[in-house]
């Protein structure tokens, strides 16, 4: 069995008095793609924000076997290879594609790495479109290109665990397929991935393991292949009609 990379135990996150996530326990092993699926408002983005140290949380989070305490700064986690591609992409709109990518390597630069040109070539090999657009301002890119830039920028940090928040959101089907193909390619390159998606079928098809998050709690978890065949998942997330929740 592969070693555990990231693990949460009874993780709770509250906005004021409203609990957005309640006692969530998940585990990601090295080299795996793990997906968290679930409807809007289930707490998926909140979960990622808490893992990244952007939100205060109760419960335990351990990354690479060490607990990430409440005070662990985001930049320290990025330096240890935990990188988040947020749902809103959060690009530097008035800076060039190349500069956006370069800043992805900032945490490594602080730790003495100077191989940014080589890393950028590797990113361009994965996303040839970005190479064509390297001098263009990030704000002028199309939706698909923006997602590619956000992922490319995260890859500049040479992540150990890459967390993707809704990478297919708002993109044309052809580009969605391309993004998921790249997710698989990254796994083959040894990057572990935590994939949060509403597009449950596509996510489960590339993932090794899956969690279904509903109303802030894990409603169901299993191997991705078993979830694809699970009638409850089919009815709620893969089928055409049903909008019942699993827990209900």
């Amino acid at each position: 069995m592969k070693p555990t990379l990231l693990e949460t135990r009874d993780l709770c996150v509250a906005y004021g008095r409203v609990e957005a996530i309640h006692k969530v326990s998940i585990r990601i092993r090295q080299g795996e793609i793990v997906t968290v699926i679930g409807p809007n408002g289930a707490g998926k983005t909140t979960l990622l924000s808490a893992l990244m140290g952007l939100l205060p949380a109760r419960g335990e989070i351990s990354y690479q076997g060490q607990p990430t305490s409440r005070s662990t700064a985001v930049d320290a986690l990025v330096g240890r290879g935990l990188v988040l591609v947020p749902e809103k992409r959060e690009l530097f709109g008035s800076m060039s594609v190349a500069d956006n990518l370069l800043l992805g390597a900032f945490a490594r630069h602080r730790r003495g790495a100077r191989d940014h040109a080589k890393t950028m070539d590797e990113v361009f090999a994965i996303f040839p479109r970005l190479a064509e657009r390297r001098t263009q301002e990030a704000g002028t890119l199309s939706g698909g290109e923006r997602q590619m830039l956000a992922m490319g920028r995260a890859l500049m940090a040479k992540p150990t665990l890459l967390m993707l928040d809704e990478p297919s959101l708002g993109l044309a089907p052809l580009i969605v397929r391309e993004i998921f193909r790249i997710v698989q390619q990254l796994k083959a390159m040894g990057v572990s991935i935590l994939l949060v998606e509403q597009n449950a079928r596509a996510a489960l098809q590339v993932a090794d393991y899956g969690y279904v998050l509903e109303n802030g709690s894990v409603a169901l978890e299993n191997d991705a292949r078993s979830l694809l065949d699970d009638p409850r998942v089919i009815e709620s997330y893969l089928g055409l009609g049903g909008s019942h929740s699993i827990a209900a």
Partner: peptide
């Protein structure tokens, strides 16, 4: 330009 984006890149 983007404080959140910068933070996520490890620019504290």
């Amino acid at each position: 330009i983007n404080r959140t984006g910068a933070r996520l890149m490890g620019i504290s």
